[in-house]
């Protein structure tokens, strides 16, 4: 059986036994979900990469120390670590406010859209930027639930556990997040377009 066919739990066991390729598969499998979840909370690519790296350093240390709780699922556990590191970052920021940079320029964003006309590119980029901004305008607890649900693919029970609230509260926050996004999009006349 190839690594692609193995469950997260099987890969974790292999990694704990010393198979480094198992970690590589776990990182490859979940990197986009974890990184996007962090990035949409901190709004800075470079900072998100630092937190992503710190998250996996904690994961590695915990797994190699034999302290991983096998009852939990791997992805929610990693997202919880990342989420806690984001909270730590904002706590430090509050104590020592600094002027932060905006997003890092990503050349691949430009290079990746070579098949479209200039107008299509501009519309797509504008929608992309607008939606990102609207998500950032959401209250943090609503933004968290939306990000964990969508990018982390977590159940509401997992989100409730992770954020220490009841399931009803987590669901309520999702509902408010959707309502607020809908209102903001209506006000901004933003049209969703899949591409």
């Amino acid at each position: 059986m190839s690594f692609h066919e193995k469950t997260d739990q099987e890969l974790v066991h292999l990694y704990i036994k010393g198979n480094e390729s198992a970690l590589s598969e776990l990182v490859t499998r979940h990197k986009s979900r974890i990184y996007t979840s962090i990035y949409l909370l901190v709004k800075d690519e470079f900072l998100a990469e630092d937190i992503f790296q710190d998250t996996f350093i904690k994961v590695i240390k915990t797994l190699k120390a034999g302290k991983y709780n096998e009852e939990g699922k791997f992805l929610p556990w990693v997202l919880r670590i990342g989420h806690n590191l984001v909270i730590d970052h904002f706590r430090k920021e509050k104590r020592n406010p600094t002027i932060t940079n905006s997003d890092g320029f990503d050349i691949f964003d430009v290079l990746g859209i070579h098949d479209e006309s200039m107008e299509e590119k501009m519309i797509k980029q504008q929608t992309h930027d607008d939606l990102k901004k609207l998500i950032h305008y959401l209250p943090s607890e609503q933004k968290e639930v939306l990000i964990m649900r969508h990018y982390g693919d977590l159940s509401f029970k997992e989100i409730a556990d992770l954020t220490s609230v009841s399931i009803n509260t987590a669901l309520g926050r999702m509902r408010y997040a959707l309502n607020n996004l809908r209102k903001m999009m209506t006000n901004k006349e933003l049209i969703l377009k899949a591409s």
Partner: peptide
């Protein structure tokens, strides 16, 4: 969902 999926980024 499709618009949210378009925001996915990788490290």
């Amino acid at each position: 969902k499709p618009a949210l999926n378009n925001l996915v980024k990788s490290p």
